[in-house]
Amino acid sequence: MSGLTIGVDIAKRFFQVHVIDGNDQVLTNRKLRRSELLAFFEDLPPSLIGMESCGAAHHWARELIALGHEVKLMTPKYVKPYVKRGKNDAVDAEAICEAVSRPTMRFVAVKSVDHQSVLMIHRTRSLLIRQRTMLVNALRGHLAELGIVAPVGIERVGELVDRVLGHEGDELGVPPLVRSIVKTYTRQITIVTDEVKQLEKQLRDWHRTSEASRRLATIPGIGQIIATALAATVANPEAFPSGRSFAAWLGLTPRSNSSGGRERNGRITKAGDRTLRTLLVLGATSVIRRVTSGRETPLYGWVKRLIETGKPPRLVTVVLANKIARIAWAVMTGKVEYQPERAALAV
Rank of each mutant, 00 (worst) to 15 (best):
P237K: 09
W329P: 04
S242Q: 15
A95Q: 05
K311H: 08
N29A: 11
I226E: 00
V136C: 15
R62W: 03
G7P: 01
I189D: 00
K72R: 15
G68N: 08
A138F: 02
A232C: 13
Y300I: 09
T133M: 08
E42D: 13
K31I: 14
R132A: 07
E308F: 05
R342M: 13
D194C: 10
A93T: 03
K80H: 05
T269E: 06
G166N: 11
L252D: 00
L127S: 15
V110C: 04
A346M: 14
F246L: 08
L250G: 01
A39P: 02
T228I: 11
K270R: 11
A284R: 01
H142P: 10
V152F: 13
I189R: 00
G266R: 09
I226S: 03
A66Q: 11
M74S: 05
G169K: 11
T228D: 07
L32F: 05
I129W: 06
T333G: 12
P151L: 08
A144I: 08
Q25H: 14
K84D: 07
R34V: 03
L37S: 02
P45A: 07
V161T: 08
D89F: 06
L37N: 02
V178I: 12
V316M: 02
W329D: 01
A61Q: 09
L306T: 05
A212I: 01
V318C: 03
F240T: 02
Q202G: 01
G221Y: 01
D194L: 14
G294P: 07
G251Q: 05
S245Y: 09
R62T: 10
N88G: 08
R179T: 12
S101Y: 05
A212Q: 04
N257E: 13
G86E: 07
G310A: 06
P237E: 11
T278Q: 09
F14V: 13
V118G: 02
L345F: 15
R33D: 07
G166W: 13
V26R: 05
S47Y: 00
K323E: 07
K304P: 04
L252K: 02
I222S: 01
L38C: 09
A271D: 10
I327W: 01
I154M: 11
T309L: 15
R274P: 06
I268V: 12
